[in-house]
């Protein structure tokens, strides 16, 4: 330690406010530098690879699955759709449940929440940064599945014309554009869950509890969807239209379910982001 003989670096007048983008950049860098999150993404990338290899091995023995999986051996691009339909019900929500449930509660448990607030980050700004970083994580985690599936599919299976669900055929380029749109739609499907997880993470200082609730709710929603007696509330579940992205593979594209899905997600985002705001801006930070 020195008795601070070094001159203080020149400082800007502190009344000058920067846009506050610094924290967002830092949050994203921190998020994608953290080993846990990298492990989640690596696990997501492995799923399409494993699926592709499994299909390759089983088709040699003359066996074949149904739906997208059946199409994969004819056209590698279908591995993107098959991988998304496989990961959307469980693996993607699980990854997002972990990251969103940890958003605020993780900072609280570590004690870093008090230092961020005293810095001062501003409670609303911190919540906005966390929310935006969850949008980025939804997008990145879905894109990782798609990209891994695309590379595996093209490496193991033939390419060429793609036959749509409606029976028409389109070229590889047009099909790739559809794959990008589908990736975006799947990522958007996760936003309701992300908002819910963010809200839960403002309620507790125990991240594991928030993660369990966020992930558990997705499982509960899946179960509720399977019970016919609950048909009245099913259209309000954030999982209800998760498979609507497949409608992009029709010509012309059937938009009704996709719009319904986006509306549900928007509703969840508005309700739970507001609830998270109400909670975080009024709570006592005692951690």
């Amino acid at each position: 330690m020195s008795q601070s003989s070094v001159a203080l670096p020149a400082l800007r007048p502190r009344a000058r406010r920067t846009l506050g983008g610094s924290l967002l950049v830092n949050e994203l860098v921190t998020m994608f530098r953290r080993n846990r999150n990298l492990a989640l993404l690596a696990a997501l990338a492995l799923i399409p690879v494993a699926l592709g290899v499994a299909i390759k091995l089983s088709t040699h023995r003359g066996r074949n699955g149904g739906g997208f999986i059946a199409e994969v051996s004819n056209n590698g691009l279908f591995l993107v759709f098959a991988a998304l339909s496989l990961t959307l019900p469980i693996f993607l929500p699980m990854a997002l449940g972990v990251v969103s449930g940890d958003a605020i509660s993780g900072e609280a448990a570590q004690g870093t929440l008090r230092y961020l607030l005293v810095a001062p980050a501003g409670r609303v700004r911190l919540l906005a940064v966390k929310g935006f970083s969850l949008v980025v994580f939804s997008l990145v985690s879905t894109a990782v599945v798609s990209a891994a599936a695309l590379l595996t599919g093209l490496a193991l299976f033939p390419g060429g014309q793609v036959t749509l669900l409606s029976g028409d055929s389109i070229g590889m380029g047009a099909a790739l554009v559809k794959a990008v749109w589908i990736t975006l739609l799947v990522a958007a499907s996760l936003l309701g869950l992300a908002a819910l997880g963010l809200f839960v993470s403002t309620l507790t200082d125990t991240p594991i509890a928030a993660m369990a609730v966020a992930t558990g709710l997705t499982i509960a929603a899946g179960i509720m969807q399977a019970i016919p007696q609950l048909s009245a509330i099913q259209p309000w579940l954030y999982t209800y239209q998760w498979s609507s992205y497949a409608d992009l593979l029709r010509d012309p594209v059937y938009l009704s379910n996709i719009e319904h899905n986006l509306l549900i997600q928007l509703g969840y985002v508005v309700v739970f982001a507001s609830a998270a705001w109400a909670r975080l801006t009024t709570r006592d930070v005692t951690s």
């Binding site: 400082l11 502190r14 000058r16 920067t18 924290l23 921190t30 230092y115 961020l116 810095a119 001062p120």
Partner: peptide
Amino acid sequence: LARYDAADRTADPRT
């Protein structure tokens, strides 16, 4: 330290 400094919106990133 960089993270805590980024959290302070009046902190100048250049310094």
